[in-house]
Nucleic acid binder design. Sequence first.
DNA 1: AGCGATTGTCTCTTACAAGAGACGCGTGTA
DNA 2: TACACGCGTCTCTTGTAAGAGACAATCGCT
Lengths: 262, 262
Amino acid sequence: MQDGNASALSAGEKISGSREKGLNRVLEILEFLHTTQRAIGIGDLAKGVNAPRSTTYTLVRSLVDAGLLEMEGDGNRVYFGKKLYLYGMDYVQGNDLLRRGRQEVDNLSRETGETSELCMLQSGRYTIVHASPGTRPFRISSATGLQIPLPWTASGRLLLAGLEKAEIEGMVSDDDLVLPDGRKLRLDDFVADIAKARITGYCVTSGLVDAYTKCLAAPVFSAPGKVEATMCLVVPIDTSEGRTGELIGLLRDRAAKLSIAG
Amino acid sequence: MQDGNASALSAGEKISGSREKGLNRVLEILEFLHTTQRAIGIGDLAKGVNAPRSTTYTLVRSLVDAGLLEMEGDGNRVYFGKKLYLYGMDYVQGNDLLRRGRQEVDNLSRETGETSELCMLQSGRYTIVHASPGTRPFRISSATGLQIPLPWTASGRLLLAGLEKAEIEGMVSDDDLVLPDGRKLRLDDFVADIAKARITGYCVTSGLVDAYTKCLAAPVFSAPGKVEATMCLVVPIDTSEGRTGELIGLLRDRAAKLSIAG
DNA sequence: AGCGATTGTCTCTTACAAGAGACGCGTGTA
DNA sequence: TACACGCGTCTCTTGTAAGAGACAATCGCT
């Protein structure tokens, strides 16, 4: 991480030793806060994004002044600020799909009692955009904003429907193909899954993210053939075939309703 | 806002002609998009923030890559992106007051049928953080994220409670004291209003923002004496004294409930 | 009290980003 | 067809922001 002692130039990314553009540092700061999910001291922040302390202080001050970040009570820690919330609401406001999708997801989880999610691609990564927990006693993990490798999910297979193999290859790294249980998925199998999901119009995966759940997903189209998002349900892996079928039907129905608008 | 054609050097700010830091440009871009409330072409954006075209293109590309902005369908216009939405949700998540306040505002407007709002200070400006429209046939204006001069509102008087006169003076410009109908408020009167609101524990203003409404507001405390937010109701100016009293009671009750946590 | 770690501020240098402006392309309109 | 206009990309220069590092002030531990 730290001192730039030259040596082997790793593939792809440049060694983050040199002078960095302020904006990039800011983007890293925001991303870092997104992962921590809580306020953090400026010193730690500097360490976290591997930036010089003096620079970090300057940038944080700018961001706090602008309201993108806020100082936490004691005046030492920082976290996201009201401005970001306002901009976020602007985004929701300007985005029919998201607005209606959130609604529909909430409905779905209330009606079925299962955990329900709205998922989208976010700069090439699978992202849970909105989640509603469901009523089961044991918590099925899934937090809004979580990013997961595409091959681990049913939604991922739908979101990539219609893309060329080369494009798909570009969007998943080798690491992404290694499932949480250690198994390695073959790229060709993944591509085949995608093709199949595209035809059947839904997708089910069992025990991929964890061994106890399966994931049902249906595509939401923004234009014919263009998958803009997916709705999905996360259910216990031992859910009966009958109920699974029912849920898929419901899911496809709702996802189709979301697809109408342009 | 205005054009930047040099001439008289206004107090405070420097003329935005020279070389600007990239980060500042970005902050202006975001703010500009917030005011437009819709996607905009990059060329127009450059004009809007008075930045060189080449620079704007570079910055926008960075922001789009980072997901803070997104290209609109045809690939020419830009607007806020999913990342901002996610960060915004993080903010809500980490902010009990906001989370519960939104809920309470929604309840309040459903129960009373009136337009209800949650308001906070945002870098020294009064900001409507969340609004719920109410059921009256005529729309009472009030959009989330709207920023209004402090002296125009009942909430403004509560939010400044406990500040010194000098501090207050620093937060309101001369322009802010000019009401929408052209009348000019005296600073001393405003300061007196604030002191009064602090003691009575609520505030009512009639016909300030517009001639047809009055605004009822109650403070939400984050610590004893520290007003963190206000809840308010916007009602027709001819609302009877009796009903107004009822609503104020309800409002104060709910605001007090919000105040509990730390 | 004594010591190390951390925090916030400041100064100075230089690597480099911001900006000016030219270019090629597509589009509308006279 | 010719012209004016807006878009997106590139190149080159120079003003300046990123970063190294020193500093005093606090904090926490023994």
